[in-house]
Design a protein around this nucleic acid. Structure first.
Lengths: 169, 169
DNA sequence: GCTTGATATGTAAGCTCTTACATGTCAAGC
DNA sequence: GCTTGACATGTAAGAGCTTACATATCAAGC
């Protein structure tokens, strides 16, 4: 379902686009919130067209099909946004490594947290590159991502400090 | 892979357990980091036993099988923790709703953010109930979850304020 | 005109996860 | 002794996602 919603959202916000365009948008904008590669997007667009949520607006070179959101699609998007209680499902390998940290002894644990720290830092840097402030489409999610990344980075620093005091009692 | 790791981690940390026990542990402890129901756990344990990562230590009433982690399993767990670069994959319906927020007009947007706020608040409350501080097994991940939840909650408050200034110019 | 690399679109196999169904045991209260 | 509800273990269908493969076009440089 959420893949559909993300695709509908992109089509609604940025206008008609091809599968390739949408895959690029996933990479560059929705990326920190939801992921999907072209191998998932192309077949999904076909199904969505069959369900009347999008329509092929025009066809260009290289079999390029430009999809546009339909009235039905726009309605479904709005309904989902306003009515759908988001599922709390989170599956995070980074958090899982944090969870299992106490199974490692000192040095190994420090190494893992340092890798996690680097990971959070690079994600934060990614987000900080994106157009801040202003009326950008994904601006709210961007702020959320920034806030969460900063919190994660702070956690890594605290945890490193904690591990070091434990190893030198 | 990560499901296996989570199961190995629980067995390593808490000792031998049945599928049911592990499902309960998922619900009560790993829950904010990784989810799995019994329908996923039972068959996975069978496969893991076939791969020599766990072994049936004893069988009790009601077909209850107690699994224990093997030396191979412990090795694989440690290797994954120390060597595996976590994938940055995040799929969050809450963040997706945040992302698509600008597609809604004022009142609807406020309603959605209020629901998100309630969601974050209840997750935070959940985490705050769990045994804080002390040497608990998942303590680092708990702190990470708390930090992220607080950041998300703060985001919701900021966003509500932002939406309200926009609607009354 | 030919090669090369970026662009662009797809299919298929296999793994992971969810939802729904199916079954049987044990303890407590009647 | 029977019912009921919590405990406990499983299977199966189908949806969702990843990885690997397959192909064809266009632009730029040789």
């Amino acid at each position: 379902m959420s893949l559909r919603i993300a695709l509908l959202g992109l089509l609604e916000a940025k206008g008609p686009a091809s599968g390739y365009d949408l895959a690029k948008s996933f990479e560059h904008s929705v990326n920190h919130v939801w992921q999907a590669g072209h191998t998932q997007i192309y077949p999904e667009l076909v199904k969505m067209a069959a369900d009347g949520l999008v329509a092929v607006e025009s066809e260009g070179a290289r079999g390029r099909k430009i999809y546009a959101i339909t009235a039905d699609g726009a309605r479904q998007l709005r309904d989902w946004l306003v009515e759908h209680q988001p599922s709390g499902t989170i599956r995070s390998e980074t958090a899982l490594q944090a969870f299992l940290l106490p199974l490692l002894d000192g040095d190994d644990a420090v190494q893992v947290v340092e890798r996690l720290r680097a990971f959070f830092a690079s994600r934060l840097a990614d987000l900080e590159c994106k157009p801040h402030e202003g009326p950008g489409f994904g601006r709210y999610a961007l702020k959320l991502g920034l806030a969460q990344s900063r919190a994660s980075l702070a956690w890594a620093d605290e945890t490193l400090a904690d591990l070091k005091t434990r190893s030198t009692p």
